[in-house]
Amino acid sequence: MTDKIEELEITLLLEALYQRFHYDFRSYSKASIKRRLRQLRERLGYRNFSAMLEGLLHDAAIFPQVISYLTVQVSEMFRDPSYFRALREHVVPHLRTYPSLKVWIAGCSSGEEFYSLAILFREEGLEQKTMFYATDINPGALEAASAGVYNLDRIRGFTENHQQSGGRSSLSDYYTTAYGKASFDRTLRDRVVFSDHSLVTDAVFGEMHLISCRNVLIYFDSALQDRTLKLFSDSLIRKGFLGLGSKESLRFSSESGSFLDYVQGERIYQKRDL
């Protein structure tokens, strides 16, 4: 029913991205990826996807644009405050019992989710024993994350979210402002490693107490979601925690048996003690 030629062209484009550039979007949710690619094709002014494929392979300027367009960068600090409140109330007490902690923010975008957790951990007195790993595949996003500078017009929303998440301090304690920007305190970055890691092609790199991976799985097809959840389960310590986005769940996944619903409604799961 879909234009069969366009379908084939998209398959070829994704294959080229993988074989030539080692970025694997082949098992992303088809409808989303098609939409992004169509928008990009229009923006770049290509007549069809075959012309875009030629550009991708022969014009070095095209690849970075394709990557930044296919990896959707929409984020906020303390996005869905009730999630962070649930972490505070139900997961933090458990985390207190460990001598040291590892936390993985997978698909960290420009760092908003990492800074939210770093502030939450500082407020709860856990920061000093924690090592954070914040990973993404978008190089521009990782750079922005390690800079920790956001437009001032976003701070109001971040502040409201922080308060609703049960914040024990004022968000303004953590940034300084200049020229319409807010720069987050560099000491928040003392205990984090930002790195390029793909949930599709890279492997387990440590034993985590908590993995927060929000609004990334929705971009994957069911098979890739299952594979990623297996990666998470293999990366968690016994009884480790997994937090997903507010519209992501294990309900339709073959991996649901590896996890317990820990905070119902907030998509916080605990690895089963098998």
Binding site: S29, S32, R36, V74, I218, Y219, S222, G245, K247, F252
Partner: peptide, 8 residues
């Protein structure tokens, strides 16, 4: 199947 997205 259905998909959700948090695109702009």
């Amino acid at each position: 199947v259905l998909s959700l997205s948090s695109d702009e």
